[in-house]
């Protein structure tokens, strides 16, 4: 298992799916373990009722069907698919509404979905929420500046919300961002940066402002940090590496 996870860290991010399938076929006994520890690129489906797209993940899946956050219906239809409680569904509806505005403001497009469910196994967890964003930033997708030949941003934010105690709840956020951006033209050739990072954040917050407000602020802060470290640290390190391989142009002229 350790070797398998190290392989996932070394293999090219564009090969996540192939690497994972290959590892699961070599280690069938660890399949579910691998699936839970390795995030995969997000897929979308169109809600047949509202016509809006929603994101698929393990958290809105029951058997081979996926629940849409817009109509609360399973696609393809499922007789007795799992549904959140009425109370939680209300919060889920509100979260989807608000989060799609958030998504618009930061992503100038993109698809968002929020799923919530009660966790019966863990006593100290009140409920779990998963906030998902998928953005196609390519010039043929929703890239406003049209500079990307290919541009993928998949964000997965999983939040465990603890039971309230004296008006305070514990929030545990695990976020993954997977991205890939390619620019390409004849004079410069093809330039691709791709990757994935995962981070965690734990905090206790007063629930006076409501769970949605707390979760939202955490996600916004986490996305800011992750975007920053991708830009500054991760891309920066690859740039540094290129500059140590060949001296920057000002040296050679």
């Amino acid at each position: 298992m350790e070797g398998a996870l190290d392989l996932m860290r070394r293999m090219h991010p564009k090969h996540i799916d192939t690497s994972l399938t290959a590892l699961m076929s070599l280690l069938p006994d660890y399949s579910s373990n691998l699936l839970s520890q390795v995030d995969q690129p997000l897929q979308v489906l169109r809600d047949m009722e509202s016509g809006k797209e929603f994101i698929l993940c393990d958290y809105n899946r029951d058997a081979d069907s996926y629940r849409s956050p817009w109509s609360n219906k399973y696609h393809p239809p499922l007789e007795d698919g799992n549904l959140p409680s009425t109370e939680l569904r209300e919060l889920e509806i509100e979260a989807n509404d608000v989060f799609s505005v958030y998504c618009d403001q930061y992503y100038e497009g993109g698809i968002s979905s929020v799923y919530m469910w009660e966790d019966d196994n863990e006593n100290y967890v009140k409920f779990i929420a998963c906030f998902l964003i998928k953005k196609d930033g390519s010039s043929t997708g929703q890239g406003r500046r049209g500079c990307l030949q290919e541009g993928i941003w998949d964000a997965i934010h999983l939040i465990e919300v603890g039971a309230e105690e004296d008006g305070i709840a514990h929030y545990c956020l695990t976020s993954t961002v997977m991205l890939s951006l390619t620019t390409s033209d004849e004079s410069k050739g093809e330039f691709t940066l791709s990757g994935s990072i995962r981070r965690q954040m734990n905090t206790d917050l007063s629930v006076a402002e409501g769970h949605l407000c707390n979760m939202g602020k955490m996600i916004e802060e986490m996305e800011r940090k992750m975007r920053n470290s991708l830009d500054q640290v991760y891309f920066g390190k690859t740039r540094e590496m290129v500059y140590t391989l060949r001296r920057p142009t000002k040296w050679c002229r």
Binding site: M8, G189, E190, F191, T192, M241
Partner: peptide, 17 residues
């Protein structure tokens, strides 16, 4: 040209011309 940075993550550069 390629680069791989993988401290707490996995980010790769691929460039060709």
């Amino acid at each position: 040209v390629g680069a791989h940075y993988f401290e707490e993550g996995n980010v790769q550069l691929d460039a060709n011309h």
